[in-house]
């Protein structure tokens, strides 16, 4: 019984310090020092409206935008998840085949980068590989009626190595890339 009473007191103390105190310190620090990322790295447009989060992929289907990696949860940022399919599951094959078709096909000589046909763990990966972006340049340039080289330059400028010298490949943030596209290489007005 004394164990129980003492236990209650220790439980209360840990609750106060490890939950209350700890959360307060981290929350206070975050809201003061890094309010932008602390609240979800939200991106607003000129009007101050939230257009998304820098860290959260959103669906792009229009040919004039770069498309993100497929999402097993259809880019639902309130219920994220991966496909969790086994790597040999035929569903993966079907999904990839459909995507390859949507991207206008791929050949042995010009294979589609793997990231464009694989869903990420959360279904919200905001990045595609540099190769994945370059694979789409022709379509985007065509849809926007701009020189592919201009798009390529933009893509290359925005690509970065996520782990500096620790990582080999380079990646591009799709939302930021598409925002830059709209800002710098705007499609001819009302092309549709």
């Amino acid at each position: 019984m004394s164990d129980f009473i003492s236990g209650l007191r220790v439980a209360a103390a840990t609750m106060v310090l490890c939950v209350g105190g700890y959360t307060a310190i981290i929350l206070g620090f975050a809201q003061v020092v890094t309010p932008a990322t602390a609240n979800g790295s939200l991106v607003t447009n000129g009007d101050g409206k939230i257009v998304g989060s820098r860290l959260i992929a959103q669906a792009f289907t229009s040919p004039q935008y770069f498309w993100p990696r497929p999402s097993a949860v259809d880019y639902d940022a309130a219920g994220a998840g991966g496909s969790n399919l086994s790597p040999a599951n035929p569903e993966l094959t079907e999904r990839a085949a459909a995507l390859i078709a949507a991207y206008g096909g791929a050949t042995e000589e010009r294979p589609i980068p793997a990231d464009l046909v694989t869903a990420s763990g959360a279904g919200l990966d905001p990045h595609i590989s540099l190769e994945g972006a370059l694979f789409q340049v022709a379509r985007v340039a065509r849809a926007r009626g701009v020189e592919p080289s201009a798009v390529t330059t933009l893509v290359r400028n925005m690509a970065y190595a996520p782990g500096a010298f620790f990582t080999d490949g380079r990646i591009v943030n799709v939302l930021e890339l598409n925002l830059a596209l709209d800002a710098e290489l705007a499609a001819p007005a009302d092309s549709d």
Partner: peptide, 15 residues
């Protein structure tokens, strides 16, 4: 399928 093989298995992974 004609998918690039250099990057390994990317299903379920974050770039």
């Amino acid at each position: 399928l004609a998918v690039s093989e250099e990057t390994g298995n990317l299903e379920g992974k974050e770039l």
